[in-house]
Design a protein around this nucleic acid. Sequence first.
DNA 1: TTGTACGCGTTATCAT
DNA 2: ATGATAACGCGTACAA
Lengths: 354, 354
Amino acid sequence: MCTFISYKKQSLILKKVITLKHIARELEVSISTVSKALKNSEEISRDTKERIQAYAKLYNYRPNNIAISLKNKRTKNIGVIIPDIVHHFFTTVVRGIESYANSKGYNVIVCLSDESFDKEVINMEMLANGSIDGFIMSLSVGTQLKNDYNHLKEITEQGIPLVMFDRVTDEIKCDKVIINDREGAYMAVKKLIGNGRKKIALITTDNYLSIGKQRTDGYRDALRDHGLEVNENLILSMPQMKMDEKAISDFYDREEVDAVLCVHETFAMYSMRVALKKGLKVPEDIEFIGFTDGNLSKYAYPSLTAIAQHGEQMGEMSSKMLIEKIESEKEEEEETYVTEVLQSTLVERESTKN
Amino acid sequence: MCTFISYKKQSLILKKVITLKHIARELEVSISTVSKALKNSEEISRDTKERIQAYAKLYNYRPNNIAISLKNKRTKNIGVIIPDIVHHFFTTVVRGIESYANSKGYNVIVCLSDESFDKEVINMEMLANGSIDGFIMSLSVGTQLKNDYNHLKEITEQGIPLVMFDRVTDEIKCDKVIINDREGAYMAVKKLIGNGRKKIALITTDNYLSIGKQRTDGYRDALRDHGLEVNENLILSMPQMKMDEKAISDFYDREEVDAVLCVHETFAMYSMRVALKKGLKVPEDIEFIGFTDGNLSKYAYPSLTAIAQHGEQMGEMSSKMLIEKIESEKEEEEETYVTEVLQSTLVERESTKN
DNA sequence: TTGTACGCGTTATCAT
DNA sequence: ATGATAACGCGTACAA
């Protein structure tokens, strides 16, 4: 790493930020007159309004967001807590959240829990003290493992609106947006069966907690519903995100497999790679379907048939639900919580036959 | 999309958010006494301090961030404006920014310009009115095309610290963090030449503006420095991000090519796919190197040799520079601006020979 | 038509 | 040791 330091002199003509007070002093009127004039209030004479507005425009007056937030007890910020951001799915969700929020005049404060319980708690507490009007979040692995949701309870008890998406928990009563994962897996397996596959493997990980379970259920159900026996040996559970080509290679050697469903596209890439290396033809000899319809699935060769999770839609939905809660003001004694279940869809590509 | 609505009754025992005023009233002391007591001030008697602190703890008192921001004229928020978030590189940068900022007690407000000039301007103006202490940003394509940087000028004139990364402009005097793109391309081509390649193509796009030019320069320089002639026919410029297999296929048919440098990993994936389809062997018959060391490069088969841009490091650096500026307070008449140039590195994988 | 006063929650300065 | 007051910037109910 090398550094070029360039010393540049700047005359720093700081266009000082103007406040109502400055304008009032300068124009020799009161602050409230200025305030009203800038709001085009009927109370103020055309004449003074024009003077004030002209001056404000000239000096590029903009109301201070912080002062307004303090006054209104509304920040127009929403806090988003996600486990990771270098992650296609979460990224699409954030895009959806941001786009809707933005259209409603809200900003998005993103904090990363880094899959850690502690960071999740710290970040949420940091934001909960007035910085945001509501939260949208997806549980970190750490939190799911610890099974401790007190920080979320506190948030809701404080009356701060909360929407959970994807990685949710029944422990917390709040709005939720999830995807029908079981159904997704079911569809995928059904597709494989339809293509004449009989020895369908599932490559999963113990890490995907709530999510992983549903996908496995869908896999099992689909097999059973189509008269195929569930062979536990065909379920390979890999520890963590650490993919291990050797383990997959051994798996293929050990079991006869003609199709593979993977709980994530990276898994699919790995297992397809191993198959290709063994000289198998995709999709002729073996077919692949992966969860998460990300760039990998799209650009891979052969491209991967995938179960799309519609992250952007999920984000928009979460954002919409949150903002409606925020703006509904109804401090009713009885709250209504909704769980939206989005349907996953199968995006067919080259790794499966048509 | 189907919806399960669950009506759940909640007794909404809203743990009301407590302020200094409440504590003061309840404990029959003044607000300032409470404030001091909670700061463990020496002025306050041990006795009252203990009472107050106990009460505050019991009711989980937390100072209101907004009020503090208003008072201090410091929000402890930094605004990050990026063109897109469903994008591996920007995502890694955000992670770097967030991680450093967080360690310094700052939150990150992320806004997406969506490659649009207008959105970039709107978002920045929105945040500039007191919501943030400084900006970190990368120019949208729209802004680069329009070549209009007045919004950035205004920001700096207002004395708001600004750090630009990756997609920067000379028009604005501020701290910058960029990567040595020319050098990256140079290294890549040198590597290919070292492997005995002589017909090295460049697949680029006119969209990559400032960045694209440097990469092309590096490509040209490397060829020339190693006694190879630059054949303009070997430079394929594709419009936009719209990849077109046909165009690449025709390109291969038209020109003899034994290695390809691509300005983005998606381009590399496409061009490699076309080559594989034509029955070429990678890396025996043709080698590939792509910019952006993302998931595609890593998980592809064959995996792609890539020029890593070290986004996370870039983010950390930007974050560090910005926070130092924010906290340095020095409103000197003469500002010093630094441009950090990070070195890209070549990550060798299967798409090139060793 | 314009201005005064107060409040949002906090902190710092200056009395008492 | 404790409290009153002002200030941050804004908006508004109420006076004048």
